[in-house]
Amino acid sequence: MSAGFHVSKDVLARIVIAASAWVSAAVVLFLFLFLAWFCRPLLDMTTLARLLSWDWRPFQGSFGILSMLTGSLLLAFSSMLLAFPVGVGICCFIHGIGPPSLARFVLRAVKLMTSVPTVVYGFVAVFVLVPLLRDVFHRGSGFSLLAAILGLAILVLPTVVLMLHSRFLTVEPQVRLTAAALGMTSSQKLLHLVIPASKRGFLAAAVLGLGRALGDTMIPLMLAGNAPQVPGSVFDSVRAMTAHIALVVATDSHSLAYLSLFACGLLLFLTTTLVNIGLRMLTRNREVGS
């Protein structure tokens, strides 16, 4: 009697566990379906053409999102261009260039950086970085592409370092004996063995950092000035897709404006999916190779 009761309870638990797993997996699907559902009007060619234009002037009836797309891509790629070499440098310091005690300290600092809220980075940058840029370059208000690039570079730095660090950690034991046999110093080992052997890690770190920079909202929203235009220089103001979503929800109520917001959302969803598939391929091939 009691045994029978136990079995049925176990079966129930199994069902609950499996159901929660599928619910968790379905969240992402629901997100996609919602975005796609609200983007239905885009199937109409004239609406699509109106949205895929360069002009965002809601009061004159133009709702183009291409300048936001450009803004997002510019911000993400330039900030990665800055953060990636610095990240590589920090990671090399941790793995052999610097003395071990300092290396541990630097690694801790990088990990601690991940816990700083984005909005705090943004807040401090508004009152330090923006006035600094304004005073040094005397070009505009300081709320510019450059300010947002610098802010984003700081934000994605830990992502790059930690991804590379985890790759170096797996590569290093494989080459340790070789390096010792050749009498290499730790920096020689790093430069000639570890770095060449972790190409995939470099690529994965770049892709991950790019995804993170593309998806961040607060730094572009607080620092980039949010003018919907294609910037002519790094001192011009830009608007990212993420910031566009935040701004439109707060102000507009026109249906085409809402449509532009879901179109941006769908674009972000698709780029994130691509980034994830890329990362998966990078890590899977590694497992096959080793």
């Binding site: 997996a25 992402v28 998806g215 993420t242 929800v249 879901f262 994130t272």
Partner: peptide, 23 residues
């Protein structure tokens, strides 16, 4: 499939979760 969905959700920009709520 399950781990792909979870990883995908982990990579989603937080503004999309906000947009989801708004939608």
């Amino acid at each position: 499939m399950l781990s792909f969905c979870v990883d995908l959700l982990a990579g989603m920009p937080s503004i999309l979760m906000g947009l989801f709520g708004f939608a």
